[in-house]
Amino acid sequence: MITDDLYKMYLTYLLAGNRVECARMVNALIHENTPIKELYINLFQRSMYEVGTLWEFNKISVATEHLCTSITESLITLCYPLLFSAEHSGRKAVITCTPGEYHQLGARMVADYFELYGWDGYFLGADTPADELISYLHEKKPDLVALSISVSFNIAELQRLAMKIREQFPELPIIAGGQGFRWGGENALDNIDKVHIIRSLDELVTRFLTSQTI
């Protein structure tokens, strides 16, 4: 169980760049059968939101923020033996960051969540060129595409990308989310059909991952 004390200790190690101690804590939690969802939300997401805020308020440097991200990305890998063993339903999702969006951690966690709920979550990573995404969508024929932005100045790029997808795939549901919407901007996608803004992993679960219809 992730107590407040444990979380604070983890955050201290994370900010200090102590990958070994962070990994030891995550491994211990996995060993105690802590649910993956709890690790993702109460440890990885919570700590990275806090790291983001510290960076925003100039309390830590961008180098520290990058180090924390890199450590978290490697710690997530520790969950993979459990994550990918879920029974699959045959539904597919393609998850990607918009062109120019270099923060991929949130999108990767979303892709992992799809796997956890029995979807095939194909993750394309940071700064995916629009043409590359379109051709991948043609190849994979997913049931849904998820677009992630972590910084708000990528909203315009997200809008362009969503329109491009809609031109080629009139019926494909698009979900968009990420910290880029923290200060608003959802209405930028109002004019595009079948685009849903997702505000949290919990909302993703109830609206899409466990829903029989999209």
Binding site: E73, T77, Y80, F123, G125, A126
Partner: peptide, 9 residues
Amino acid sequence: NKEMHNLTR
């Protein structure tokens, strides 16, 4: 680093 994590995934 990102590429490595994605490949690991």
